[in-house]
């Protein structure tokens, strides 16, 4: 079973995404802030990371940076509002994130992108 790590401070969104991905057959772990996210990247074997850009304690860019250093092959999906943090999102793309899903989003579409990235 493939492992997906979600770093998102909105519990409702992370719960819904987990629900959807679990239905798709993934093992999902949720962390609600940047520090816990970095710890999870260090400790667990992850096949895909879904992260928000604006999260408590650590910037999403710092997490992406760290993930790229620790496990550069793990694909990262940024789930964020494009309008609010346009500069940050562009910076995230420059760091080599695999995909960007803007909010509001369709969970089915997100699940499809996860499947595509993990299968590749």
């Amino acid at each position: 079973m493939k492992n997906v790590l979600i770093i998102e401070d909105d519990k409702l969104i992370s719960s819904l995404v987990r629900f959807k991905l679990k239905k798709e057959g993934y093992n999902v772990t949720i962390t609600e802030d940047g520090i816990a996210g970095i710890d999870a990247i260090n400790l667990m074997e992850t096949d895909l990371i879904i992260t928000d850009v604006m999260i408590p304690f650590k910037n999403g860019i710092e997490i992406i940076n760290h993930a790229k250093k620790v496990s550069p092959k793990v694909p990262i999906i940024v789930l964020s509002s494009l309008g609010e943090e346009e500069g940050t999102v562009m910076e995230a793309f420059n760091l080599g994130v695999s995909d960007f899903v803007p909010k509001p989003f369709n969970p089915n579409e997100l699940a499809m992108r996860v499947r595509r990235l993990i299968n590749n």
């Binding site: 409702l12 969104i13 909010k103 509001p104 369709n106 969970p107 089915n108």
Partner: peptide, 10 residues
């Protein structure tokens, strides 16, 4: 909150 963050038939 979900209505704001979701799109499509959701």
């Amino acid at each position: 909150s979900l209505n704001k963050n979701m799109k499509g038939d959701f």
